[in-house]
Write a protein that binds this DNA or RNA. Structure first.
Ligand SMILES: [Mn+2]
Ligand SMILES: [Mn+2]
Ligand SMILES: [Mn+2]
Ligand SMILES: [Mn+2]
Lengths: 220, 220
DNA sequence: TTTTATTTTTAGCCTTACCTAAATCTTGAA
DNA sequence: TTCAAGATTTAGGTAAGGCTAAAAATAAAA
């Protein structure tokens, strides 16, 4: 069964907001995430329910079905593979890929995505550190914590970012934070949650809590 | 000014049917080319007229404008660059690329297409031998004749195909005709226009007029 | 247990891009 | 010059995806 571009986008949002089907999602949450209105969401939920990619009971929220998860993961897989392609092959910066990938993820061609995966050598993570589901929808996820949740003297490695906006990513470029960087918490200010961290054993960096909670770390 | 996917497709069809703005095109021609109905075409022509990519006088056909030509050539450029990418980088066969390129040509991102062009080393022709317009819309076209119009003993080189359908291209693969092949007309049957040709000085091939008129040759 | 605030859905409208059927224009044949 | 065939456009309708405003249901507070 084929989904339209709009349906794929809704399903992706529902998948993310529900944390892969675990949490329940509200109509208003979806509307906020998709920059649309609650009335439009209600309409779409009815359609997605008819296509059985969600289980929908009016006024009582929704549950993503197994079929829905497969569709969502397939779209996420395509999005992230294209992002890798843009960075690795076409020399895009990591803050330039998201918008284009939002378009490319809706190209329908199983052969294309299979060949792209092989051409890129079956990458496991996208340029923002997010895991790429395999062709069966399986995701190999690593245990990650938000940088703001770490304590003084703890160490780790930056493995992903939560915010993929150009503004945030360019800020990280400027201060020298990148995926793979080894870090150590030097100081944590109680008052505002801001941090002082050591990057790659040589550079110290101050950052606000707002920045820190968008950086994901693999602790060591 | 931005065009929708449907508008880009209409404009491309108009550009091709009018032979780059030279010939006049009828509503029915467009409907046939696009597998749609004349009424839908009329509707779209009005819209394209309002956007000034064509000059449209009701009942008297249309003229593609300079702006319209630029848009059409841009879409054609994207289509053909993607076809090269699919064949050169992702190992698609030349009969597998057209449908996917029909989708990819509508991705909007000037940076993407500029980088793709550079990544592919600024190719001049697509896998079917069609010229790729440069970023300014300039096309370097070669003088080509249809194989069926050649006379006995004339020689040349296959440089393009007119029909990009999988059925036709797979037939050419099977009989060993390919872009770049050197050919010589050995015999031409008056009755049905069928041909006997010599390929690469070693293999003889019989083909119907219908096949021959879809093969384009650079005469030598 | 009411009442109120909030969330969600429905009703009614819009645009794009299709469709069929009917009306209208152009043109070639008589 | 007239008229019918053929081409084209208009009228009216559908489906997807949006919107605002109004109605209805749920959840929270009194
Ligand atoms: Mn992204
Ligand atoms: Mn990403
Ligand atoms: Mn093509
Ligand atoms: Mn081609």
């Amino acid at each position: 069964m084929e989904l339209t571009t709009a349906e794929e986008n809704y399903l992706k949002a529902i998948y993310h907001l529900s944390d892969g089907g675990k949490k329940s999602v509200s109509t208003n949450d979806i509307a906020a995430e998709m920059n649309t209105k609650a009335a439009s969401v209600s309409d779409m939920l009815r359609k997605l329910g008819e296509k059985e990619v969600i289980e929908y009971r009016k006024y009582y929220g929704l549950q993503i079905t197994e079929s829905g998860k497969r569709h969502a993961l397939q779209t996420i897989r395509k999005h992230r593979l294209w992002e890798v392609f843009l960075v690795e092959k076409l020399n895009f910066a990591w803050d330039e890929v998201h918008e284009v990938a939002e378009q490319l993820e809706h190209i329908h061609s199983p052969l294309l995505i299979q060949r792209l995966d092989s051409y890129l050598n079956y990458p496991k993570f996208d340029p923002h550190g997010d895991p790429i589901p395999d062709e069966f929808g399986d995701v190999r996820s690593r245990p990650r914590v938000q940088l703001n949740e770490m304590e003084v003297d703890q160490t780790g490695q930056i493995v992903a970012v939560k915010d993929s906006s150009a503004a945030f990513l360019r800020y990280l470029d400027k201060v020298g934070a990148y995926i793979g960087a080894r870090i150590k918490i030097l100081d944590k200010v109680e008052f505002d949650g801001s941090l002082e961290i050591l990057v790659d054993q040589k550079k110290t960096l101050f950052m606000s809590k707002e920045v820190a909670c968008n950086i994901l770390v693999l602790q060591s």
